Simulated assay, not measured.
Amino acid sequence: MSEEKLYAVKNDDGEYWDFADRDGFFELSFAYCPTTDNEEDAKDAVHDYGGHVVAFVEEPKKVVLNKEQAEIVDDAHGNEIPASFIASKSDDEELMMNAYVNGYTVAKEKKYKVRVPETQTSYYYKGSDGHVHASDTSGGLDNEFSDYELQQYGLDGERFKKEEVTDDEQ
C-alpha cells in the first residue's frame, strides 16, 4: 500500500479550501484545486481559515484467493481469534491475513477444452451418464473441464491437447 496521501480542508458548510487560489472555501465542484500532498499546507489553512483536515489514503488492493482459501477467511470472521484460526488452517498466513483485513476476490477456475488425440475437430465432453464422450460438434455440450476434472476423467496426460477457455468463450 502506498504511504502517499492527499489532504483537503473542509469547513462546517461542506465547502473545500482551494489550494490553487488560496482565497476561500468553495463547493467541491467549483474548487480548482481542493487537495494538496503537503500536510503542513492543509494544517496551515485550518489554522488560518478554520475547517478540518480530511486525509485521503489509497485503498489497499484485494487479495486473490482460491475457493478453499476464501472459505478459511470467511470462517475466520466468525472465529473468536481469527489470526490463530487462519494460522491453524493455512500455510500462507501473510496472504490470508491480508485477505482478512483488506478483502479478497476468488480467482476464476481455469477451464479447458480437450481435443481427442489425432483428430482435428473432435473434442471430449461430459455426458449425462457421468462418462466422457467424443463429438465433432460442440454446440450445447458440456465440454469444459477444470484441472480436477481433467485428473478425474484421465484427460491430463501429455497425449491430450488442452485449450484454455477464455472469458469470451464462457
Rank of each mutant, 00 (worst) to 15 (best):
H133D: 03
A8G: 12
D18W: 05
G103V: 04
H52G: 06
E39F: 11
N98Q: 13
D92E: 11
G50N: 05
S29F: 06
A134T: 06
E40C: 06
K62H: 03
F19K: 01
K89Y: 00
D91V: 06
D18S: 08
E68F: 12
N38F: 05
D168L: 10
G139R: 12
Y123L: 15
N66T: 04
D13I: 04
T35N: 05
E80G: 14
V106L: 10
A20E: 01
H52E: 08
L65E: 03
P117W: 10
D167W: 08
V46S: 10
E80V: 14
K61L: 09
F145P: 08
E93D: 11
M97C: 04
F160S: 02
K126W: 05
D18H: 06
V9C: 06
E94A: 13
S128I: 11
D21S: 13
Y112Q: 05
D13L: 09
G50Q: 04
Y112P: 08
G51T: 01
K67D: 03
T121S: 14
I81G: 03
E59P: 07
F56H: 09
S84Q: 10
Y49R: 01
F145N: 03
K161Y: 00
N38E: 02
I72K: 15
S90F: 04
K89G: 00
L28V: 01
L6E: 01
K113H: 09
V165S: 02
Y124L: 13
Y125R: 12
P82A: 11
K62W: 02
E27A: 09
S146P: 06
Q69N: 08
E58N: 09
E27M: 06
D129L: 11
V57A: 08
E39W: 07
P82M: 05
D91A: 10
E94M: 08
D156H: 14
R159D: 00
Q120P: 01
G50H: 06
S128L: 12
A134E: 05
G24K: 00
E3W: 11
W17I: 00
E71I: 14
F145W: 05
D37K: 15
G50F: 02
Q170T: 03
A31H: 00
K10M: 01
Y125E: 03
Y123C: 09
A107M: 11
R115F: 15
E163T: 01
V132T: 15
H133Q: 13
N98E: 09
D18V: 03
Q170I: 09
K113D: 01
N98S: 14
S146W: 04
H133T: 04
P60S: 08
Q152W: 11
A76W: 02
P34R: 07
Q152I: 02
D147L: 14
P117H: 14
S128H: 09
L150E: 03
I72S: 09
F56Y: 14
V54K: 13
N98R: 15
S88K: 14
